[in-house]
Design a binder for these strands. Sequence first.
RNA 1: CGGGGCGUGGCUCAGCCUGGUAGAGCGCCUGGUUCGGGUCCAGGAGGCCGGAGGUUCGAAUCCUCUCGCCCCGACCA
Length: 567
Amino acid sequence: MFWSQLYVPTLRETPAEAEVVSHQLLLRAGYVRQLAAGIYSYLPLAQRSLLKIQQIIREEMDAIGGQEMLLPALNPAEVWKESGRWDVMGDNMFRLKDRFGRELCLGMTHEEVMTSLARGEVRSYKQLPQIWYQIQTKFRDEPRPKSGLLRVRQFLMKDSYSFDLLPAGLDVSYEKHRVAYNKIFERCGLKFIAVEAHSGAMGGSQSHEFMVESNAGEDLVVVCESAGYGANLEKAVSRPLAPATADDETPLEPEEFPTPNQKTIAELVAFTGVAATGLIKSVVYVGDEKPYLCLLRGDHQLSETKFSSATGAVEVRPAHPAEIQDWFGAAPGSLGPVGVKNMPILADLTLEGRHNLITGANKDDFHLRNVTPGEDFTATFHDLRQVAEGDTHLETGAPLKIVKTVEIGHIFKLGYKYSESMGLKVSDQDGKEVTVIMGSYGIGVERILCAAIELFHDENGMSMPASIAPFQVVITPASYLDPAVKAAGEQLYKECKALGLDALLDDRDERPGMKFKDAELIGIPYRITIGKKLPNGIVEVQTRRGRTSADVAISEAAAHVAQLIRG
RNA sequence: CGGGGCGUGGCUCAGCCUGGUAGAGCGCCUGGUUCGGGUCCAGGAGGCCGGAGGUUCGAAUCCUCUCGCCCCGACCA
């Protein structure tokens, strides 16, 4: 490709609306333009990069026996009603009606359509297992699109679905995907981690997320490198910090004391002089419209996900202040478990075996001291708390890190959720009908591009991995007016193409400085500069990442770059 | 949906408070100049100031409504 024939509208200044680096650079480097909130047009550079990402995904999916299909993005309501997700998806689903008033939606994922397809086709266990996939546009009416291409309303997803006769088969399909995903993200040049995840509204038993560490990310992940542990914060477990001071274990009766206007844990710590670890935090949550009192150590936070698992509740929310007043006769800030009879009390495991703690008295502006779980109130103990900074690995005690990440892939063991509700069955060896077991597996295509930019950039622009850069090498004749330099550039371009390199020749009549700036901004991993040393048969090969360069004989230059790309 | 910010040429922004002929830099076009890190000089094109309504002799500027975008929160298979 000749640069003069490529539409690359680079911007000298960063557009005002862009906050995160990948968004700023995608705009500045002329990769994308915004049409509306969370809706983007992909210009030639982005499209080239995205096609390369998709090709890598295809190759690795095909390698595990995946079969590419393309399902409709426009879906009838019926299949979504069958699975129950027509209602579950709520406002996140784009809905429309056809001219006859029939309800339709734009697909936000394709479990329903895939299951519907499979139940019409697959009859026998002999046809299993199957792995079906597509790379397709998904639509989600995000409440708040943000961060450029990281959270959008229309995006490309590789989604695949496995169909197996038996759970052991699902394990195999899941493992195949896990391996394939590792290969895909490695080939895309990313640094990533695979972590245990919560399955959320997808349903199912086991799931892993593939995450790239980035400040632009929205997901918090707990990792322990030495123990090889990684989990989404909502799912992670840890060994907590020990209480700041040992409990006084003498048997004492609860004792009320005034705490005027002391509502938060921080205020109580300052007021009483007792460390947060000596307090019981009381949080009232509503699960499926039933109230629960949740108790945590003062320095801990409730994990809604764990609350949901402990209670089995699907719909979870904090109680409203008015409800709390009703149930406790006191306002939040003075709540506690002693004497509570009208709802289940769930206590975090860290409170088991503790003595003489401080908690609310269920009377405004009063707290109780000398409250001992198991003696002064009874509760069931569960893991309810979110992992906190400073916690250590549950088994090894090694330090844990909490990092911000971008999710680029997610794999789920769905189990029978969709096959059951939608009636996907096959005959087994004995001629009996058996419900098929499924998995589903997604990759956010644009997020790979964003993650690569977030991971690899400097003050001069992007520094794309060679495998997914829009071009692998740019040939930059310092002056296109010098006939010898021009001829050498065109010759070198041909040599690069002959070696199979995806090359770009900067044939523009621009000053060298401008060409260098542009090439670095758009992130081409290698640049061959033809200039001053051409009379000696020498050109310069620059590596974008780190901006190191080497003089190379012009006859060797193409091969040299090919060598660098192969690693 | 709650809170905050911003809409003025393609981009970055000034002008608004205190109403009176719409500005700068970059980019774009023409000519010249220069040619290894976003050259320099001269000339030029391009904006009904997001939209609607109101106040006023007169509105980018004041008032009301509305639309859009960004950020924080809620939310997030």
